[in-house]
């Protein structure tokens, strides 16, 4: 196998926050009945996590599971393990009507970190990112200016942002503009 390369190959920028492309992240789209027991078991086996509730992100490092819609989850596993985990998941789900598919290469992942991280994201996503409203453990599917995006928090000052791979260049440049020096808003 040739060496897989993420969309921007770990590009990074320092402004009022640090913006960094994280490299490849194993991702599985799992669609199904989220109350189904075999689905819950497959998720648990793959990630060690329970099925998340609405807008929940149960993530630790590069492993976890995020709620995407009433019948869709995003399962996160290390990139190198995605095929194995997917195969195990498909096997565990058996005849249960579900769809599990590898989408790792269809995405790009960024972190925005630093004291102004909330404000940087708040310039491009129409979401209440105050600490009262948004905390680690939550996920939002929204938009990043003109493209679709989703994000959750690794810790109080770090966002993990996911977009489509084709938009990686746009999103990186967008976040650079949003993080430009001297652009602190001073509200979060």
């Amino acid at each position: 196998m040739s060496e897989p390369i993420s969309a921007l190959n770990h590009a990074s920028y320092d402004g009022i926050a640090n913006v960094r492309e994280c490299g490849l992240q194993g991702m599985i789209t799992l669609r199904g009945d989220l109350s189904d027991k075999s689905l819950a078991k497959a998720v648990k086996d793959a990630t060690g996590q329970n099925v998340p509730g609405q807008r929940e992100a149960l993530v630790s490092g590069d492993t976890g599971v995020c709620w995407m819609s009433p019948d869709e989850l995003l399962v996160l596993v290390p990139y190198a393990e995605v095929e194995t985990k997917l195969a195990a998941m498909v096997k565990a789900l058996g005849k249960t009507h579900t769809l599990a598919v590898n989408v790792s290469d269809a995405r790009a992942v960024f972190t925005i970190s630093g004291a102004s991280a909330r404000e940087v994201l708040g310039k491009v996503a129409p979401v209440d990112l105050s600490s009262e409203a948004f905390q680690p453990g939550q996920i939002r599917r929204s938009r990043l200016a003109q493209v679709a995006g989703a994000f959750w928090m690794d810790d109080a000052e770090t966002f993990r942002v996911v977009c489509f791979r084709s938009a990686a260049d746009y999103v990186f440049k967008l976040l650079k503009v949003a993080a430009q020096p001297g652009s602190e808003v001073g509200v979060y």
Binding site: K123, A145, Q146, A167, Y170, K173, L174, V177
Partner: peptide
């Protein structure tokens, strides 16, 4: 807003 220059519009690659 930010939509000018190289981020005027997303270009999918």
């Amino acid at each position: 807003g930010e939509a000018r220059g190289e981020v005027f519009q997303p270009i999918r690659q």
